[in-house]
Amino acid sequence: MAGARSTGASFARTPVPADRRTGEPTLIAVATDRKTSSATEDDALAIQRLTARWRVQVEPVPWDAPADWGRYAAVLIRSTWDYHLRPSAFLAWAELVERSGAVLWNPASVVRWNADKRYLADLARAGVPVIPTERIPRGTTVQLGQLLERLGWEQAIVKPAVSAGSYRTVRLGPDDLGDSAPLIRAILEETDALVQPFLPEVCSEGEWSFIYFADGNGALAFSHAVLKRPAPADFRVQSDYGGTAEAVAPPPSLLRQADAAVATIARLAPGPLLYARIDGVVSAGTHGPAGTLLLMEAELIEPALFFATDAGAADRFADAVARRLALAPA
């Protein structure tokens, strides 16, 4: 399933040369959270390939630890999976890393753009097929029953505009509005909320994830894809809720749609991308023409990259890092 297929989307490239004057390995930090203070098992696969092939030293560091980020040539955002709980602090940290002189991937400007799901509206305006999304401003009192009736949606997904890992994400229909009201009020006390139609295709066919890495020529290249499925009677595909992910080779027509979406994302993103993952569902015809890949998320901050599902994925990621840092072979 490996691919060197580039999207054709170009972005500014600024290779960061390694300092070879001392002969010391280039120092790279992998940013985690305190719960996953060491690299995840999946990320460790990429770190192993990076350190085996290139003269580097990699250190996992919790993003909110008192660290001297200027010691590192680069900081790779990986399992910072609590950032949505303190988004202002996380954005300030990303800017701090860059001020220290370390290169951050993906950059702070991209983190800021991608942290709030208002970017979905940017992509929709640019022509990317995006799942229909209604944004409810913070502090608003909303009658969800009336909203669903107006939109013609039998069931909907409600989530915070800044969220990750299905945090405070609820599926509801007309019979669930009363039980869900306290959670929705809590969301709107802190941030905007998003309302999207529930897509049964997630449960029947699965949710696709397409992973891309910088190709060294100013574009993003497709690496591999997985198909994620929720546990029975659930709608969330994350492993924390019993979801599964399997390696699947996407049909050519579907990959072309993913490539086009990623090309637009790379064009609109306010900084160069080292990696990107897009999540979507193939429409059965209700919210888009049948066979259309409906984008649900563009994951540019701390996505799981599913290295374990593809034999060459860790090497492709390591190559992307090595090109950006002009690393010396091990």
Rank of each mutant, 00 (worst) to 15 (best):
R135Y: 13
S239T: 12
E134F: 04
E297F: 10
D215Q: 11
A92E: 14
V110E: 00
S79L: 04
G3T: 12
A102H: 07
T292S: 15
V262K: 10
G127F: 06
L194Y: 13
D215W: 11
W81M: 00
D42R: 12
A318F: 07
N106K: 00
K117S: 05
I77W: 04
R229F: 02
T141R: 14
T191S: 11
L144T: 12
L120A: 08
S223K: 05
W54N: 04
W69R: 05
E299A: 14
D175T: 15
G271Y: 12
H84R: 02
V202I: 14
V281Y: 14
Q238A: 08
P197L: 04
D82I: 01
R53L: 11
I136T: 09
I77P: 02
L188G: 01
F213W: 15
L227T: 05
A94D: 01
D64C: 01
Y119V: 09
I157G: 08
A314R: 09
L294A: 09
T140V: 01
A318T: 08
E246R: 15
D175W: 11
V111L: 04
L327M: 05
G23T: 04
R150I: 12
S253M: 09
V128T: 15
G271A: 09
L254K: 08
L273C: 13
W69P: 02
A39T: 13
Q146W: 03
A94K: 00
V170L: 15
S209A: 13
F213R: 08
W81F: 03
T244L: 00
S223P: 13
D310G: 00
I136S: 10
R20F: 03
V75A: 15
P107N: 01
L104E: 01
D42S: 13
V128K: 15
Q146T: 10
V262P: 08
R150M: 03
G312H: 12
L104Y: 08
R135W: 14
Y275F: 11
R78A: 15
D279I: 09
R71W: 02
V58P: 01
P250E: 10
